[in-house]
Computed example of a mutant assay.
Amino acid sequence: MTRHAALLEAVAGITGDRPVDGRRVGGGDASEIYEVQLAGGDVVIAKTSLADLPGAMVAEAAGLDWLGAAGAVPVPAVRGHDDSWLVMARVEPGRPSRAAAEQLGRDLAALHAAGAPAFGAPPPGGPADAWVGLAPMRNEPSADWPEFFATQRIEPYLRRVVDEGTLSASESREIARVCDRLPEIAGPVEPPARLHGDLWGGNVHWAADGRAWLVDPAAHGGHRETDLASLHLFGCPHLDRAVAAYHEVAPLAPGWADRIPLHQLFLLLVHVVLFGRSYAGSALSAARSALAAA
């Protein structure tokens, strides 16, 4: 069966409506994204993984539902999913604006305040073994944030890149020092926040309604500074306005800006896993900055 035929068959089974046609509109290293016109008049978005990622669609669907249930930040409504495909409502694209960025900051503050049962808790109905891009990601409740971040967000990826020869033993020891000192450098204790979990700028969808919607989550219970640090990693339009608005609603703990490299270390190690040595220097720099800021 061709990919196009598989798309139409999956969307018909998930929505109960007959697809008229579909066209690819996006995707990347991990997925393909299609826009599908249904006979009933709706236009939906269908997403599929480019690799065999068990549980990926249920994890993403559960994450979108959990983020949406907070009533804080807009996310696409989930129409349904199967093992290979996720179908969502289409959100008309727009352009970034200062006003939308400020609203995004306020929305993120409300989302994080909605909370989570524990650090590392998966969304309700979501699997413990999820994915961030094409990399596996474990979500298992932990006693506190330093334990969670060390055991589920740094050490698994560090072990893998050392085993694969991407980082040397001496480089891995530098990063491992971050885990050793996490209770000291993590900042003030905070309750578990409801996180998007992979909030780089590409997962912010600037919509025609003047809002910034969130897509492609790796949702879990975590530290709210992680989402904000992720937005700083590759840039986001009007980020200064988003952060200022967030801070007005839910002031961040002193020293939060110095802890940005600490929180970015997770996604940088994921990039080392996925893309190799080209991100090794950035991961090492983040680890050194995190330790120097303590």
Rank of each mutant, 00 (worst) to 15 (best):
4 H>I: 15
6 A>V: 09
9 E>I: 02
10 A>C: 03
11 V>Y: 01
11 V>L: 06
14 I>Y: 01
16 G>R: 11
17 D>N: 14
17 D>G: 12
18 R>I: 15
20 V>M: 15
22 G>L: 08
31 S>N: 07
33 I>R: 04
34 Y>R: 02
36 V>F: 00
37 Q>D: 15
40 G>S: 14
42 D>Y: 10
42 D>K: 13
44 V>A: 03
44 V>P: 00
46 A>S: 06
46 A>G: 04
50 L>H: 06
50 L>T: 09
52 D>I: 01
58 V>Q: 01
59 A>P: 04
59 A>V: 06
60 E>I: 02
61 A>W: 11
63 G>V: 08
64 L>N: 01
67 L>K: 04
69 A>E: 12
69 A>N: 12
71 G>A: 06
74 P>K: 04
75 V>Y: 06
77 A>T: 10
77 A>K: 13
81 H>P: 01
83 D>K: 07
84 S>Y: 01
86 L>C: 09
91 V>I: 12
93 P>S: 10
93 P>R: 14
102 E>G: 10
106 R>M: 12
106 R>Q: 12
109 A>M: 07
112 H>D: 04
115 G>V: 03
118 A>L: 10
119 F>P: 08
125 G>Q: 03
128 A>S: 14
130 A>E: 03
130 A>M: 07
131 W>I: 01
135 A>W: 05
139 N>R: 14
143 A>W: 11
146 P>N: 04
149 F>W: 11
149 F>G: 04
153 R>N: 09
157 Y>N: 09
161 V>W: 00
165 G>W: 08
165 G>S: 03
167 L>P: 10
167 L>V: 15
168 S>D: 14
169 A>Y: 08
170 S>A: 14
178 V>H: 13
180 D>I: 10
182 L>N: 02
183 P>Q: 05
184 E>F: 09
185 I>F: 08
187 G>E: 02
191 P>D: 09
192 P>S: 13
195 L>S: 09
198 D>R: 01
199 L>S: 03
199 L>E: 01
203 N>Q: 11
206 W>L: 05
207 A>T: 08
210 G>K: 11
210 G>Q: 13
215 V>H: 09
215 V>D: 05
216 D>W: 11
219 A>E: 03
222 G>A: 07
223 H>E: 05
223 H>T: 09
224 R>G: 05
226 T>R: 09
227 D>L: 10
232 H>N: 14
234 F>C: 12
237 P>V: 10
239 L>P: 03
239 L>E: 02
239 L>F: 05
246 Y>K: 10
247 H>C: 14
249 V>M: 08
254 P>C: 05
254 P>H: 08
258 D>L: 08
260 I>R: 02
261 P>W: 01
261 P>A: 05
263 H>D: 03
265 L>C: 07
267 L>P: 04
268 L>V: 08
268 L>Q: 14
269 L>Q: 01
269 L>K: 01
271 H>R: 09
271 H>T: 00
272 V>G: 00
273 V>A: 02
273 V>T: 05
277 R>N: 10
279 Y>K: 04
279 Y>N: 06
280 A>Y: 00
280 A>I: 02
281 G>N: 11
288 R>A: 02
290 A>Q: 00
294 A>S: 05
